[in-house]
Design a protein around this nucleic acid. Structure first.
Lengths: 169, 169
DNA sequence: GTAGCGTAGTTGAAGGCGCAACTATTCCGC
DNA sequence: GCGGAATAGTTGCGCCTTCAACTACGCTAC
């Protein structure tokens, strides 16, 4: 994880067999680990809170949210996958499970015989409405309550900067 | 995921059935989504790069790194789990698989008959040495090359602030 | 109109992970 | 020293995710 084997393997890494590896210096290491550990821990915490208190994983929650925010509360599978940062396959499995819960149903797409629409049911919407306050409170507690307004601004700036790079694969 | 059902359910959420939910405002939403999506995408990208180019997942990589950085290249299972931000169970499964690859071996702890030591083998160390340059380059490309020095500083500050909160469960 | 290619989505197998139950060992009070 | 609680670690099960293969439909050109 930590990109810093040189300190543990000084002799071997001095050789630099790959040519010139741009190793991280001490400050970069520290920034990298802080970012990595905090995002892992925070995601884990938020997901656990949500799952344990509502029975809805963060992945499912995201699907319900994305559907709830479109008019008609329905989306093509592939659009839904994109918005959820999910692979098609993963979404397909997940929607099958949400169908079993009665929260989503599939419907063939009228415009395109290949397509499927995922439609949020009233039960699904109700489940989302029940879960949302719990999740918001969790995000407040573990994220916003810990940060100054300036830090929130920095967080947004960082995130958007990285997204500009990551969004185009 | 996005904590923002109110806009999709204005009527219902006006009721505020939970008392007073501290919903996110537009700026907070934006900061939250930027943080969430960028960290999801970045972790995904780094993990995929590493897995596809070296056959070592980020989780395995972290285990190897932590072992490589201790003298004797060995750690108690529970210490290793803590350093990898892993549950005991998860680590136990993972070490079993690393044992099958011949990269780690288990050894009963001399001080404590209940304990096990995970020991990094020479083959494991060699695998880590081969993977490290690839991973560093990936972290450079997708993270540090995208950020100004000020942004790196902000990233560290943010991460460390959040860790102070998250580290004590 | 049909061959061939691209797109949309699904499926099954294999591996990763969390949870709860389990074994084995140590620690503590008496 | 012995009974019970606490600690260390493992394991089986079930769910989730990925990958590759697959079906089904649409699009274009001929």
């Amino acid at each position: 994880m930590t990109v810093h084997v040189s300190s543990a393997a000084p002799g071997a890494s001095d050789e630099d067999p790959m040519g010139d590896v741009r190793w991280l210096d001490v400050d970069e290491q520290r920034a990298w680990r802080a970012w990595l550990y905090s995002s892992l821990l925070l995601q884990d915490r938020l997901d656990r809170d949500l799952t344990h208190e509502t029975g809805i994983s963060h992945a499912y929650y995201e699907i319900l949210v994305q559907l709830s925010e479109t008019e008609g509360r329905m989306l093509r599978m592939s659009q839904l996958a994109d918005r959820c940062l999910s692979s098609r396959s993963r979404l397909s499995h997940a929607v099958s499970r949400l169908e079993e819960r009665g929260w989503v149903r599939r419907q063939v797409c009228p415009d395109d015989g290949r397509g499927q629409l995922a439609v949020l049911t009233d039960e699904g919407f109700a489940a989302l409405e029940a879960a949302a306050p719990i999740h918001v409170e969790s995000v407040r507690t573990h994220l916003f309550d810990q940060l100054s307004p300036q830090q929130v601004e920095n967080m947004r700036d960082l995130g958007e900067t990285l997204l500009r790079h990551l969004d185009r694969p």
